[in-house]
Amino acid sequence: MIEEIQDAETLGTNPGDPLPQLPGHVSHGRFERVLRAGHFAVTTEIAPPDSADPDEVLTRASLFDGYVDAINATDGSGAHCHMSSLAVCAILTRAGYSPILQISCRDRNRIAIQGDTLGAAALGVCNALCLSGDDVGAGDHPEAKPVFDFDSVSLTRTLRVLRDESRFLSGRKLDLAPKLFIGSSINPFVPPIANRADQLAKKIEAGAEYIQSQYCFDMDVLKDFMSKAVDMGLTEKAYILIGVGVLPSARTAKWMRANVPGVHIPDNIIKRLEGADKPLREGRNICVEIMQQLKETAGVSGVHVMAYRQEKWVKDVVKRSGVLDGRVPWSPETEELN
């Protein structure tokens, strides 16, 4: 343990100098360690800046210090242009953070994606999340050519081939395989709701080792989905993290429901926000309550807090929910590795 702590301090902060890989682990990363140790994990999402300034990335990441186990770097989410997820991850690994590289199939073909995956691992990135990606029409460059050479399932399988078989899809051998902890996403809240557990099974069969879900504002649907997943044995094969969000007002909630693809917000949540004296506070209360219920739901291994433009509240909701059970995730100030 002492050795590990020293390693974390001396090695973990430089790209290419990751933590030692523990037996039975596929990556060198801290995120995988937290999950495999059986802790309830907390992840969040960083909004990549519209800037070439690396300090901006670090400033945004520091908002979560001590409260999250990993930070997702989005890949042109909503089909809007921002700093690339690979670059955000590289900057974060330099400071010792544990970023999750989101890879969307929208903008790159299999040649680019495999190359970027090797590059990310070379820069010290330990986690990747495979996504299909939003439609280009949803973004600020609707005239762009959508690529979609892969879908998220084929992408997941491809990363497993790179890592486990140490080769490109073409068969050409790699000298060093990328040691990545590989995940994918699921949205249990939109049709075909009856088949979403089957789709989860496909993602896991393709090689997903953890899953991060779309926003959960509907515990009834989630509980059904999770009980199916548990019955199918899927929660034994992959760690499931459920997405939660902080809604600032009924108006924003209604706007998101109507305009952001895949976001399901039931009427009772909107009513609660409408009836609240302090909607912003109520939005955080809702988030805290859902997190607490998720912690008690069989098969759920963690939460993924998405708080776009509400990032400053992530610490608050995580703290109040108590889901960390007093555990303090690593941050640049942390002296000890948990």
Partner: peptide, 14 residues
């Protein structure tokens, strides 16, 4: 539109 072969995506409307 995304030529997904193992779908659907997460954006399906209610």
């Amino acid at each position: 539109p995304k030529t997904i072969r193992n779908g659907p995506c997460g954006g399906v409307r209610p």
